[in-house]
Amino acid sequence: MSVDMRTYLAHVELANPITTAAGCAGSGRELAQFFDLNRLGAVITRSITLTPRSGRPTPRIAETPSGLLNAVGLQGPGIDAFLDRELPWLAERGVTTIVSIAGGSVSEYGTLARRLASAAGVTAVEVNLSCPNVEDRGRIFARDPAAAAEVIAAVRASSRYDVPVIAKLAPDVADVVAVARACVDGGADALSMINTPLGMAIDVDAMRPALAAGTGGLSGPAIRPLAVRCLWQVHAALPGVPIIGMGGVMTGRDALELILAGACVVAVGTAIFNDPYACLRILRELEDLLHKRGFERLADAVGLAHRPPGSGPRGRIDLEESSL
């Protein structure tokens, strides 16, 4: 007997909960050499910007313990080339596609959403909020509940009514629940977490920062506890909001951890770099684990770790912000 792996992002049904994480699957073609992308719940594209971007100078990625630091800098072709070449390629193959967008101002996000609204093959829009707001001295949208909500409202207003808008949150903020709530109030149909927290490494031999950009986003298993904590807090506060969980998922067991914390979809990023088949392997392992634990439906495992000790109805466990 197999497990029913279907899951929902708002009203949109995905065949299974495993997707690629934004910026970790190229244009889709690179991964398609290894397997049929239709076997994934969805593909989340890299963050698309209004104009082409060359990204940051090299070195852009440094290896850290159980993680990677990256300052790729959203290198990409821009929305015109994306709509011209990349999205049609995915659409022709029937790949369920969630398009990630990134902007430097509220109106830029709105423009991107409007361009996507008239394109075929967009299942949902994920809004990368880990970008500096050029209109607010480079303050990161995701760190400011009001600015994040404003972006989400602009994207929601410019998107088709049947296309869910997903707010992607950063973990290195004072109060992730406050940002999550602001985004939902701003019109987000779903949330996605976590983007990479900012980190830094120094090459001790060269005695210089390991990345040309100095700082970079940390990803991989090193940040999984951070992801689990964010998922836990946000799911506890907003139990009805679907969440795409991500951060250091290397195995089916890791995916299950995020699901138990509250994710109904799990995105895989860094693991793909290490193993091009990671998404399929993780999906298989997850299904096995659920089956072995007697689950008939994936949906029954979502947020299950929140139930109080013993069985009985699900309760809520409040966590202090402090770890002291």
């Binding site: 209004l50 104009t51 790729v72 821009g78 430097g104 423009t111 990479t196």
Partner: peptide, 17 residues
């Protein structure tokens, strides 16, 4: 081609991740 089409067109070329 690296500049935003925005009126007043400043780019956000300092995006994080």
């Amino acid at each position: 081609g690296g500049r935003a089409h925005e009126p007043g067109g400043q780019t956000g070329n300092r995006h994080v991740s």
